[in-house]
């Protein structure tokens, strides 16, 4: 072993702190945005699990929340609106050694990316999906999202949309996610612990974080007073679903952790190679 490799090995074993996972870029979010605290939840989770930036990838779509990879020291990919899960699944299957975490918003994840969301839960690839839910499209100036209340009156939705809200946690459960949790950005430590548990749990883990958009939904500052510890943490999806369907959306904590086997890429040596497959199509 050369001196250079020795020191590289030594460096790789020094535990990193949360601060080591912050990048040098300062967030350009509105002062007051809940997403600031989510950065620290990510960094705390990564440090607590002893992850290394070179073995960690944070993939995102488009939106204020999706800017998060830039503020972290790890591999990052700021992708296409609504398509973060597809990119992340591809990465995880090609590089199963990486810890893959996906960051999204309620617009990115439940509107344009809604179909990817369901099928990612169903496929159960071993990765963690973190959605910063502020019940609005922040980046594009305040349009209602699938989690916006039907009576939210704004310049862009006079009188409210009148549409029933989407229940992402129940959808995740029904579609087969192996871990379902809800956090609150004002509790960066607790949310960091949720993200760490999500990463540790094999399969597709879903963490929804209530993260206020103070610019378009200033009333969300009141969320701090409403959140409370969830009364259950179960491996029974029916019990978890009952709670989530009937609660007011402010129960935080791990709600469900299952035992499903994650989806892995088959590395069967006997599998046909592309050249063999081509032969089958030869006329």
């Amino acid at each position: 072993m050369t001196a250079a490799t020795t020191s590289a090995t030594a460096r790789a074993t020094i535990p990193l702190t949360a601060a080591d996972f912050k990048s040098d870029y300062k967030p350009i979010w509105c002062p007051g945005c809940g997403d600031f605290s989510v950065v620290s939840s990510f960094t705390r989770a990564f440090a607590s699990l002893g992850l290394r930036p070179e073995n960690t990838a944070v993939i995102s779509g488009i939106g204020c929340s999706s800017r998060i990879p830039a503020y972290l020291t790890s591999y990052g990919f700021h992708g296409v609106h609504g398509r973060s899960l597809a990119a992340a699944a591809g990465l995880k299957l090609a590089r199963p050694d990486l810890t893959v975490v996906v960051a999204s918003g309620d617009g990115d994840g439940y509107s344009i990316g809604g179909n990817h969301f369901m099928h990612a839960c169903r496929r159960n690839v071993d990765m963690t999906y973190v959605v910063m839910d502020n019940h609005v499209y922040g980046m594009t100036k305040g349009q209602p999202s699938p989690t916006t209340e039907p009576d939210w009156d704004s310049k862009l939705s006079p009188g409210g949309t009148g549409l029933r809200t989407f229940h992402p946690l129940v959808i995740a459960l029904a579609a087969g996610a192996n871990f379902v949790a809800r956090g609150f950005s004002g509790d960066p430590k607790g949310t960091g612990e949720l993200i760490a548990e999500a990463i540790k749990t094999p399969g597709f883990s879903f963490v929804e974080i209530l993260s206020p958009c103070v610019t378009f939904r200033p009333e969300q500052r009141e969320w701090r007073k409403a959140v409370r510890e969830a009364p259950i943490n179960t491996d029974d999806p029916a019990r978890a679903a009952r709670l989530i369907m009937t609660d007011d959306g402010f129960n935080i904590g791990i709600l469900y952790r299952g035992h499903r086997e994650p989806y892995y890429r088959k590395t069967d040596k006997a599998a046909k190679q592309p050249a063999d497959l081509e032969k089958g199509f030869a006329i």
């Binding site: 002062p31 609150f184 103070v214 969300q220 500052r221």
Partner: peptide
């Protein structure tokens, strides 16, 4: 609370404050 008692609440900021 969620954080140490002297730590400011992130959501209290406003760009024109």
């Amino acid at each position: 609370g969620f954080e140490a008692p002297e730590t400011g609440d992130v959501t209290e900021l406003h760009y024109l404050m």
